[in-house]
């Protein structure tokens, strides 16, 4: 057993993938708690599709000769999209859902066209859709560490504000909290998390990292702090397990992580139901 882990961690590319992935999973889970509870889960989906569209734009521009790291094209655009989505949803809750779907679908479609017309649906494009563990470079490690530090600080120092704004934004605003700023912050950090995590998990799957851990934790926990902590623990654990399984059984890494999350969700749902029925007996 120990030998296996020694071998597993002897490969640089695996260590990098595990570090970046775990940190992304951690951030996604924490941010996800707030997003899911505000019924804003779809922002993850919307932003990841915008991410895909912007990355193909970056690749396309590269193919035309402009030497740009696709990330540098994608990150600012996705952040802008995050602010836009937030703005839209603030103005009307019903429109919010449809607006996300609009932006989501359009970005994906535009991305596919750009890809088809420039480089074709090649390896790079497929990797961005479905993820690739080899895509992590040294810079990604630093970037993900920086991101996690910021998210963790946010969650520790502003935990109570985040709770108040998530539970009851109207009350928070009425008593003087600048809810708008916190919402922007969460949206911004979500955008960064998605752009970093998308390269490993894939644009189509990264939003699951945001949604699943929070939902799972809510099956069994009754108060906010346990939900937050459990969500973070579950996310990182499921990620690591998924990576391990993908290594052992040669399954795609991103999808394996999501499947593990799914299994854990079902387990916890069952647990939650048993607990409830146990309490009434």
């Amino acid at each position: 057993m120990l030998d296996f882990f020694q071998e597993f961690f002897s490969y640089t590319f695996i260590v990098r993938a595990v570090i970046v992935g775990s940190l992304v999973a951690l951030c996604a889970a924490l941010l996800g708690v707030s997003l899911v509870l505000k019924r804003f889960s779809m922002i993850g989906d919307g932003l990841s599709h915008v991410g895909f569209g912007t990355i193909t734009l970056g690749i396309g521009l590269n193919a035309l000769g402009l030497n740009l790291a696709p990330l540098s094209v994608s990150l600012p655009l996705v952040i802008i999209a995050a602010f836009l989505l937030l703005r839209i949803s603030e103005n009307s809750k019903i429109k919010g859902d449809a607006a996300i779907a609009l932006i989501s679908g359009s970005s994906l479609a535009i991305g596919v066209i750009i890809a088809a017309k420039t480089t074709g649906m090649n390896t790079d494009v497929c990797n961005y859709m479905f993820g690739s563990i080899l895509a992590m470079k040294k810079d990604d490690v630093y970037l993900s560490i920086a991101l996690s530090v910021v998210v963790l600080i946010l969650f520790i120092l502003f935990y109570h504000k985040i709770f108040a704004v998530t539970f009851d934004e109207a009350f928070a605003r009425a008593t003087g909290t600048k809810a708008g700023i916190y919402n922007m912050l969460v949206a911004l950090l979500t955008a960064v998390t998605i752009v970093i995590g998308m390269r490993m998990m894939g644009a189509l799957l990264i939003s699951s990292l945001i949604i699943f851990p929070a939902l799972t934790a809510m099956r069994v926990c009754k108060s906010f702090r346990p939900v937050t902590i459990l969500s973070a623990i579950l996310s990182v654990t499921c990620f690591f397990t998924g990576m391990l399984l993908s290594f052992l059984y040669s399954t795609p890494a991103g999808a394996s992580v999501v499947v593990v999350n799914l299994i854990v969700f079902c387990l916890f749902s069952l647990l939650g139901k048993i607990r409830k029925s146990g309490a009434t007996i």
């Binding site: 490969y11 590319f13 497929c126 563990i133 993908s246 290594f247 040669s250 399954t251 795609p252 890494a253």
Partner: peptide, 13 residues
């Protein structure tokens, strides 16, 4: 296939 499995890469290494 667009992605070689981690195991394959480990083998090659």
């Amino acid at each position: 296939e667009t992605e070689a499995s981690a195991a394959t890469i480990a083998e090659l290494i």
